[in-house]
Design a protein around this nucleic acid. Sequence first.
DNA 1: TATGAATGAGGTTTCATTCAT
DNA 2: CATGAATGAAACCTCATTCAT
Lengths: 214, 214, 214, 214
Amino acid sequence: MAVRTHGGTGMPAVTSAESAESSVPRRLLAVATRLFAEKGFDRTSVQEIVAAADVTKGAMYHYFDSKDDLLTEIYARVLRLQMSRLTEIARQEGPVAERVERAAADVVVSTIDNLDDATISFRSLHQLRPEKQREVRDERRRYHELFRSLVVEGQNQGVFTDRVPADIVVDFYFGSVHHLSTWYHPDGALSPREIGAYYARLLLDALRPAPAHR
Amino acid sequence: MAVRTHGGTGMPAVTSAESAESSVPRRLLAVATRLFAEKGFDRTSVQEIVAAADVTKGAMYHYFDSKDDLLTEIYARVLRLQMSRLTEIARQEGPVAERVERAAADVVVSTIDNLDDATISFRSLHQLRPEKQREVRDERRRYHELFRSLVVEGQNQGVFTDRVPADIVVDFYFGSVHHLSTWYHPDGALSPREIGAYYARLLLDALRPAPAHR
Amino acid sequence: MAVRTHGGTGMPAVTSAESAESSVPRRLLAVATRLFAEKGFDRTSVQEIVAAADVTKGAMYHYFDSKDDLLTEIYARVLRLQMSRLTEIARQEGPVAERVERAAADVVVSTIDNLDDATISFRSLHQLRPEKQREVRDERRRYHELFRSLVVEGQNQGVFTDRVPADIVVDFYFGSVHHLSTWYHPDGALSPREIGAYYARLLLDALRPAPAHR
Amino acid sequence: MAVRTHGGTGMPAVTSAESAESSVPRRLLAVATRLFAEKGFDRTSVQEIVAAADVTKGAMYHYFDSKDDLLTEIYARVLRLQMSRLTEIARQEGPVAERVERAAADVVVSTIDNLDDATISFRSLHQLRPEKQREVRDERRRYHELFRSLVVEGQNQGVFTDRVPADIVVDFYFGSVHHLSTWYHPDGALSPREIGAYYARLLLDALRPAPAHR
DNA sequence: TATGAATGAGGTTTCATTCAT
DNA sequence: CATGAATGAAACCTCATTCAT
């Protein structure tokens, strides 16, 4: 959509001599991701990006339409990734509770693995053009819908309580997940997988049916 | 600290005729809060703020040191409010589970009541000067600590499980709360109090002890 | 001219309780002199001056017409002082060479004694209003004329050479004197009087007649 | 250092058609020099500079980091020029008295030839950033040292008196030189070379040894 | 494919001064 | 005499983007 490549892979093959390691657009995206997460989109200048990527401004504008376009690409990448993981898990076999637990833990791990993406995506929506914002919101809604459908499935089967509407459960859980980027630190005592397990446990426990509630 | 007034109230008395309703610094803060929430701190110009507050730029800089200072004040206000509400609830009488539930529901309601503040405070931390960021983080930590101490109290009493460390529980819950501003809409079907009740319920249920887990 | 006093002394008597030590206008001038010398006229704000003098802005504008007015007063004070010292020396008895030597040494000492004044007056002329600039230049010319007349007197008597025109001699010497403020430091090895003596010696030696030149 | 050019000459070659005469950065420096000398650094706005140079503000900031940077460049240019001239003269053959006389006269001529530079450099030091100030002072000290070494050489040979320390002699003389810009006017009766000759004569005469002093 | 000079609008902030009280 | 809120013009600087080469 934004990256103008000339093959069909979505990413041009690494050809030029100047980047033994990575293609120019890939380097630009990687650098932009880091800088946007560190300093925020508006505080990061195109100049800084191209300097950090060791690329000229002209080159950047060759591959991307605008600075906004970089942000758009980052959002697209995040959404694509999360959606594909959830889809994969959702269509697996097995009890719905297990699939929900797996999905809940997985999104935590993948969020932590791409913490810069998470930082950006929860903080920069309003910096996209309104039209793009709508697209992102729509895609996010589709994601939530998919997750919600799993919760509803569990509720219908009676393995999950319906004391709390599934909508609320989903927003509740993804709020927690999105906020990982505000407190998670790689030096912490817990590994991403452990955190994922705890988060999933909290969700599953909250959904346990028939509690002799107080 | 930031608002340069010369009485002791923190806000000058309303005296001039031109603002029957509100003092100049108060108007500026109110307008800035709305605009920062709508468009983000960096996208809001001082020009827009003073125009919306019907004040001259000079007047704004008479009361506030800088645009940053406005943001700092907003953070201070939010933290002051949340902390005072939690302190109040924490020191009430009654079973710890009830106090946690009350605190959990209350923070949801007060977050929704000040949704612009919530939007700003979860999105704009990095726009504060590093020193101020640290202060905000410290105050936020004290808040979390207080909440955590309630959870730990319940765990020690055996009314809450300790399957998940109290730290994680707290971060988990406040992630959800902070993210209310990304999806809550006044036109929605649920009232703030209903949402608060659901959120508190999810937390309390997740903390129920002795689950015959799976 | 600028200080609005109500007696006739040029400086109001110290009356108010708030300044046991010095009158308000005097304090303002003293502070302004120090700050103008330290940071330059344009870099010193009225706010800084009144803060350092512990006086309100209103009070300053009560005593002085403007910030420019402070500078004008400083110039007036310097010129008044130097002129009176030179006049005093010029009309003393004794050989002209002695009077020139005395005047030359004296201006060095008095320049060092008021080093801030010297700093300001050699650096800030262009910050006065054109009309005031002319006045200062005129007064300075009168000063130079008086000094020059002594040199010419010596040349006419044959005690000074006239190899170099008296004009040039005077500009030459006062260039040196005015520049004292760029290198003199109170911690230096030489006292003001020693420097004065050396400077006077250099002038007098340069004026010695009948050199078997080279 | 300051001018961002990408060749190695320090000044880009004149290529574009719109400035047949001079490159953009050169024009900016020339205009800034004139304006800083006329009105002072702080009184000259960037707007005035770019208007006079017929350049946009953006273009100026493309070549110079800041307004300060322009001033820094001017200082660098002055110091470079003066130092190279003195070095050249100092290492010539011939009696030391002749070399001193030549250097003394030459600095006068070159100061007058670049009178705007002189005006700026003696008045604007405090407008540089402290770090740059130190650099300028250091370079100026090296210059003085070189001159002083010539004076000392003469004193050691006995062709100059040592009644006055060489330090003082040097500060004395360069005070006079720097102040040329406060009184020299092209319409005056004397040519730069004549003034240079007179100044050098005054210095040399002051240094004549063995005066039957008074 | 890539360069880098140039644009020009808009950003935040400073500050001498006034004036009602 | 003194206050301090308010003014408004002007200051320096940034930056995404374009375009001739």
